[in-house]
Write a protein that binds this DNA or RNA. Structure first.
Length: 464
RNA sequence: GUCCCCAUCGUCUAGUGGCCCAGGACAUCGGCCUCUCACGCCGAAAACGGGGGUUCGAGUCCCCCUGGGGACGCCA
């Protein structure tokens, strides 16, 4: 049997970090088993679903590199089918109309809570003659859930979990306006799509029991469930839009790489021995639901950053330049000239290990393309007193005559220059760095000079 | 409140009864490298929530407590 998974977000907001991990796990599981991974947009709540949210979700998945099979599926398009199934349940006396008003229900819940019971529907219309229905009230349709015994699920992550059927009330499957509810729609769609493994957040665990009852009532095979623990914010509670969880594109804007985010998310709740750096091929090869932990985890920005630094260093020089070029030309407010691109390509290798994010990489490389005279940070300016400026000018004159402008020659000349004046190398290098980069921190100053080229180097020195 | 789930360094985790006076990674703190800062390398500090069992032996199994989380919608 081919494995079929699905990611089923509701388009009421952006794709956040928890959703992204759920999608990743579904994707990984399907790819590992050479199965299918579908995207189903759960847009049955038309009031809250938006086009922007759908786009944010698909863009986010694409950016993360999680490609789904076939076209995305819109749950709202299957409504007729959902209603049809509800009718079948009704015909088979597995569902019934309920004429309770929302107020009545609220009261019921309140009373149950007061008595220390789980707030739930008491089933008052379950066996009542519909002839007693109050006039003019459209009923909702409720599923006739088993009253005795217990429902057990064998969850790939949570193991064997059992709940007393008394805890589960008769859920609404069709609203008073005739539209299907989530609980019905998921079951029907998952069945119709042939979903074999439902991998989703832990917050759905209790739903799994109700859904299981529905599968059984319908005589359908149940999928295997896998409820993955949630990702918590730094305070240890569920992440939400107002609480620590950012849209996936926020991570993109902060300069994170999809590869880093995938690796990070994978290791949050899943492990493979002591492995930390896991590329996507390895992830597909190793991923298994058995290795997903049962405890919730907290989001750790530092670790993400560290991983990002790793993947940044692994980038080919050309790729790295391509990735920061849009940012750079924004700062410049024009496209990069060929000369600027050349300097970047020459300097990028020295820049990569010094950045954790693309944003930092762009920031740190700006000095290469900055128009003269370059801006000198105040901390850097402190290195440029009159004394320093004087010997920097002398140095410029010596540099002018270097026959072959390469790192070795430049370094030799500068070391010799410092030696002859009994200056420590740092006393020359720091002012040099300040005048050439405008900063106190940069890659090796000799590399910088090579990347800048002789003309620009001398010009910057003489700008002082 | 009721039900369900969870519990190893600050964080993510390894650990499936003896290999663990608990290993890795991030972060932290030292050191090396060194023209600055990173990278890299070396090293340090840092955890099995508590109490009962079971067993020759428990981080690993059972029970209780405590703590945390999630679910209890005509939302998904």
């Amino acid at each position: 049997m081919t494995v079929i998974t699905r990611f089923a977000p509701s388009p009421t907001g952006f794709l956040h970090i928890g959703g992204a991990r759920t999608a990743l796990f579904n994707w990984l599981f399907a790819r590992h088993h050479a199965g299918k991974f579908y995207l189903r947009i759960e847009d049955t709540d038309r009031k809250r679903s938006t086009k922007q949210a759908i786009k944010a979700i698909t863009d986010g998945l694409q950016w993360l590199g999680l490609s789904w099979d076939g076209d995305e599926i819109f749950q709202s398009e299957n409504q007729e089918r959902h209603v049809k199934i509800a009718k079948i349940l009704l015909d088979q006396d597995l569902a019934y109309p309920c004429y309770c008003s929302p107020n009545e229900l609220a009261e019921m819940r309140e009373q149950a809570r007061a008595k220390g019971l789980q707030p739930r529907y008491d089933g008052r219309w379950r066996d009542r003659d519909p002839a007693e229905a109050p006039p003019g009230v459209k009923p909702s349709i409720r599923f006739k859930a088993p009253k005795d015994g217990a429902t057990v699920i064998h969850d790939s992550v949570q193991g064997c979990v059992e709940v007393d059927n008394q805890q589960l009330d008769d859920m609404i499957i069709l609203r008073a306006d005739g539209t299907p509810t989530y609980m019905l729609s998921v079951v029907v769609d998952d069945h119709d799509m042939g979903v074999t493994n439902v991998i989703r957040g832990d917050d759905h665990l209790t739903n799994a029991f109700r859904q299981t009852q529905l599968y059984r009532a319908l005589g359908w095979d149940e999928p295997t469930f896998a409820h993955v623990p949630l990702i918590h914010g730094s305070d240890g509670t569920k992440m939400s839009k107002r609480h620590g969880s950012l849209a996936i594109n926020a991570y993109q804007e902060m300069g994170f790489l999809p590869s880093a985010l995938r690796n990070y998310l994978l290791r949050l709740g899943w492990s493979h021995g002591d492995e930390e750096i896991i590329d996507t091929d390895k992830a597909i090869e190793w991923f298994d639901l058995q290795d997903v932990g049962r405890a919730p985890s907290r989001f750790d920005y530092n670790k993400l950053e560290s991983l990002n630094g790793h993947y940044l260093r692994e980038l080919k020089d050309d790729q790295a330049v391509d990735l920061i070029e849009p940012d750079l030309s924004d700062r410049l407010r024009h496209k990069l000239t060929e000369e600027q691109q050349n300097r970047l390509h020459a300097g990028i290798a020295g820049l990569k290990p010094r950045a954790k994010t693309l944003v930092q990489l762009a920031e740190n490389s700006f000095f290469y393309i900055a128009p003269r005279p370059i801006n000198i940070e105040s901390k850097a300016a402190k290195f440029l007193d009159d004394n320093a400026k004087a010997y920097l000018l002398e140095l410029a004159n010596e540099l002018q005559d270097v026959t072959d402008w390469n790192k070795e020659n430049i370094e030799n000349l500068i070391r010799e220059f410092a030696n002859s004046r009994t200056l420590k190398l740092g006393l020359v290098a720091q002012p040099l760095r300040a005048s050439l980069t405008g900063m106190t921190v940069s890659p090796s100053i000799f590399e910088v000079m090579v990347a800048l080229g002789r003309f620009e180097t001398l010009a910057r020195l003489r700008d002082l």
